[in-house]
């Protein structure tokens, strides 16, 4: 198995997370925003696995399993919301959903 500096694994996670974050903030399409959220969750998973590998423990993997579960639930609800949103507004532009403004 690889014996890389743990910082490299964490750097990979950080870069992936930042990319997802840019997409989340920059895209107006809801589907792309959900994809960006998936990237960010995955990046967090990478960080856990890397940290788990640093100490040779399985807790990081357990945490990733929980992230996986959460991602599954989040995606199912999020995509259902996307469908409703599109049915109502006939667009995927997230900036169209401003009826809750103060």
């Amino acid at each position: 198995m690889a014996t890389v500096p743990v910082a490299h694994g964490l750097l990979l996670a950080g870069v992936l997370f930042a990319l997802g974050l840019v997409a989340l903030l920059g895209r107006r399409n809801v589907i792309f925003m959900l994809l960006a959220v998936e990237i960010m969750l995955n990046a967090a998973g990478v960080a856990f696995i890397a940290a788990g590998a640093r100490w040779g423990r399985v807790d990081g993997q357990v945490m990733f399993l929980f992230i996986l579960t959460m991602a599954a639930a989040e995606v199912s609800v999020g995509l259902a919301l996307v469908l409703q949103f599109y049915n109502r507004t006939r667009t995927l532009d997230v900036d169209a959903a401003t009826s809750m403004k103060g």
Partner: peptide
């Protein structure tokens, strides 16, 4: 991009500053 760049810079800085170590070649 600016915001995330700053965030990434901070994260990289913090990661590089922390005590180093390598992953163990052990299979979970």
């Amino acid at each position: 991009a600016l915001l995330c760049g700053v965030l990434l810079g901070e994260v990289i800085y913090l990661i590089l500053r922390m005590p180093t170590g390598t992953t163990l070649a052990r299979v979970g």
